[in-house]
Design a protein around this nucleic acid. Structure first.
Lengths: 334, 334
DNA sequence: ACATAAAATAAAAACGCTTAAATATTATAA
DNA sequence: TTATAATATTTAAGCGTTTTTATTTTATGT
C-alpha cells in the first residue's frame, strides 16, 4: 500500500519524470504542473524513498561524523555547528563514535557507500582513516587534526599562538613564576601550546616555574595543584592546557583558602561553557568552535561538489578572553 | 569501474544469489562456497552498496536518535551506551538535534524511510513526534519521557523515589532545615522529584526550609545560594534537582568560606561525571544511564523485529550515592 | 542401489527512484 | 504564417541488491 512516484504521477496526470523533477527542484517544470504535483503529493501523503533515490542518484545525503568520544563538551559546540550547517543544506548526520581502531573502522558506515562525505573531529590516529577514505574516494575534512598532513583538507587552530598569548598575558601582568600543566604529549595541541609557553618565557628572558603533565580533565589539575600545596612552594600563576585542568587547579587552591586571583592566577584553554560558570570566572584562550565547524562543513560541501578540487587547510587564531581568574601577582601589589 | 555482486559471483564461479546469501549470513551456503565468495570479495575489494540493499530489503540498518540538545553531559552516557549496543547489532546511528518544533521535524530523516527505528531522548514535546512516527509506522522508544503516555514504549527513572531518597538521606542525618532547588516546572522529572522531597518531609513531620526554582545549570545554583547568603539565613542542607545546580551551590558557599558539609550539606541528582571530580565529592542520586540506554535499544530492536508487539514501559530506580558533600548538621555535633 | 527428503543454486522479477536521449510543446522572430 | 530556438515531457534504461519460485544437487534411510 505504499504510495510511489507513479501514484503521484497518475494522480497529477503527468509522468514520473516530471514528479521526480519537482522532487529535485529542477527548473524544467511548468509552474502549473509543479503545483499539480505538489498537490497530488499532499493528497496522497507521499514521501520519497531515500534508498531508491540514493541508488539511482549515487548520493545519500548523509555526512558521517567521526568522534573519538562523546564525552568532550568542548566538541559540543563544533558538532552543534556542523549539525546546523548541514541541516541548512539538506544533509543528515550519521554518528560514528570510534576510538580509531581498525576494526571499528571497518564496521563503520564508510564501507558501504552510505555517506557522501566525512568529517573527522580530533581523530587520534587519522592515518588509517585517511588511507581508507582516499581509497574509497570519499571526500573528507579533518577538524582539529593531530597530524600535520599536507595531503588532506583540514581546519585547525594555532595552538602555539594560544599558548604564547596565555603566557604573555601572565607575564605582562608581572608574573615570573608561571607553571604550565600540559595535556597528553600525544596531542599535537599539547605540544604546540607548550612551545608557545616556552617561547613567551624565552622572549621575556625568564625561566618557567615548571611544567607538569596531566590529562585534559579536572582530576589532573586538582592532583597537581595539591602536590604544589603539599610541597609548600607555589607558582604565582598557572597556565593549564585546558579549562578542565584549570577548574581542577582552582578547586584545589580554593579548598585550601588560597585565593584566586589574589594569591595565584589561573588561565585555561578552550573557553568551554563551564569556564564562565564557576567563580572566579576563568580567564582562558578561546577556540572559535563555531567557525571551525562552519568552515569544516563549507570545505566538505565544496569537496563533494567537485572532488577534484585541491585540498585546503585553514588555521584560526584563538582569542584571549580575560575574566576574573588572573591578576597582577601579590608581590607586585602596593 | 564499481565492483558489484555480479563481479564477485563471476569470480567465485557462483550465482549472485549465493553471494547475496553469504552477505546476509544465510545458512543455505556450503562452507566451501562461502569461502570462495569471501575470497573473491577480498580479491576484488568488494563493498556492498547500502542503498541497493535497503531498497531491496526494505531495511536501512539505521536508527535515528533525536536529542533536544547536545549540550547535556548527562545524556552522553546514554548516547554512548546506545551507540555501543547498536553497533553490536550492526546498526548505525543517525543524529537529529531538534528542538521539537514541527518544521525541523518535517525536515528530519524520519520522513523518507531512512531509518528502521527511532530513539527519542528527553523529547520536549513528544506528541508531534509520536503522532508522526505512528502514522509512518516507524518503531520507536522514548527515553526519559516527560509525558505519561501509555500508548508508547518508554524507559524512565522513578524520579519521585529519587527525590524521596535524597531528602530522606538528609533527614536521617538529622537535618530539619532542608531547601530544594527545582529544575524547570515543565519537566516531569522536576515535578516528580519535588513530590518526593515533599513526601519525605510529610512523613517525617517537618517543614521544608523552602523551595526555589532554577534551570538545570550551575548559574542557577550559584544565584540561589548567593541569595541565601545575602539574606543571612541559610538552610542546613540543600537538595538540588541536578548535579549542576548542586555544583553551583557549592561554588557559592565555598567562596564565602561556608564549609561543605560541615556548615551545609549538599546533595545533587544524576551522578554525572563532574559530580565526583570536584571537592568535596558530591553526594547524589544516580540515574542508571547505561541501563536506560541498553534497555531502550533492546526494546526498540524487538519492536523492529515484530512491529505488532505491544508497547512496554520500564522504570528504573535511581540509586543514592553517598560521598563527601553530606554530613550531620552542625547543631547536632558534639 | 533407490526413493525421498533436505539443502543449495539459478533465473527472473521486483524495490522506487534518477537520468540521458528522444520527442513534443510552447515561445520568439522573421 | 512559418521556421527556429527554447522549454517541457516522455520513453526506456539503469542503479545494486534481495526475494520468490523453480530447478538441481547432495544427504538420509531402507
Amino acid at each position: 500500500m505504499k504510495v510511489s512516484i507513479f501514484d503521484v504521477a497518475k494522480k497529477a496526470g503527468l509522468s514520473v519524470v516530471t514528479v521526480s523533477r519537482v522532487l529535485n527542484h529542477s527548473t524544467s517544470v511548468r509552474q502549473k504542473n509543479r503545483e499539480k504535483v505538489l498537490q497530488a503529493m499532499k493528497e496522497l501523503d507521499y514521501h520519497p524513498n531515500a534508498s531508491a533515490r540514493s541508488l539511482a542518484s549515487g548520493k545519500t545525503g548523509i555526512i558521517g561524523l567521526t568522534l573519538a568520544t562523546l564525552h568532550d563538551s568542548v566538541l559540543d559546540a563544533v558538532v552543534q555547528e556542523i549539525n546546523d550547517r548541514l541541516a541548512e543544506h539538506g544533509y543528515f548526520l550519521a554518528l560514528s563514535i570510534s576510538q580509531g581502531d581498525e576494526e571499528s573502522f571497518r564496521r563503520s558506515m564508510f564501507q558501504e557507500d552510505r555517506v557522501d562525505g566525512v568529517i573527522l573531529v580530533s581523530p587520534a590516529n587519522s592515518d588509517i582513516y585517511v588511507m581508507e577514505l582516499k581509497k574509497r574516494k570519499i571526500p573528507f575534512v579533518i577538524l582539529d587534526s593531530q597530524q600535520r598532513n599536507i595531503a588532506v583538507s583540514m581546519v585547525t587552530v594555532n595552538n602555539f599562538k594560544g599558548g604564547y598569548d596565555a603566557t604573555k598575558h601572565l607575564i605582562d601582568l608581572g608574573h615570573t613564576e608561571i607553571a604550565y600543566i600540559n595535556g597528553p604529549e600525544s596531542f599535537l595541541s599539547s605540544r604546540e601550546r607548550e612551545k608557545g609557553f616556552l617561547f613567551a618565557h624565552e622572549e621575556a628572558g625568564i625561566k618557567p616555574f615548571g611544567i607538569e603533565n596531566g590529562e585534559f580533565d579536572i582530576p589532573s589539575g586538582y592532583r597537581i595543584a595539591s602536590r604544589w600545596i603539599e610541597s609548600g612552594r607555589l607558582p604565582t600563576a598557572v597556565f593549564a592546557a585546558d579549562d578542565f585542568i584549570a577548574l581542577g587547579v582552582m578547586d584545589a587552591f580554593k579548598n585550601e583558602g588560597i585565593h584566586i586571583p589574589r594569591d595565584v592566577s589561573v588561565i585555561g584553554f578552550d573557553d568551554q561553557i563551564y569556564a564562565s560558570e564557576f567563580h572566579p570566572k576563568l580567564t582562558t584562550v578561546r577556540q572559535p568552535f563555531e567557525k571551525i565547524g562552519k568552515q569544516g562543513v563549507d570545505i566538505l560541501l565544496k569537496l563533494i561538489k567537485d572532488p577534484s578540487r585541491r585540498n585546503v587547510s585553514i588555521e584560526f587564531d584563538p582569542e584571549l578572553v580575560v575574566r576574573e581568574s588572573t591578576a597582577v601577582p601579590r608581590s607586585t601589589r602596593t
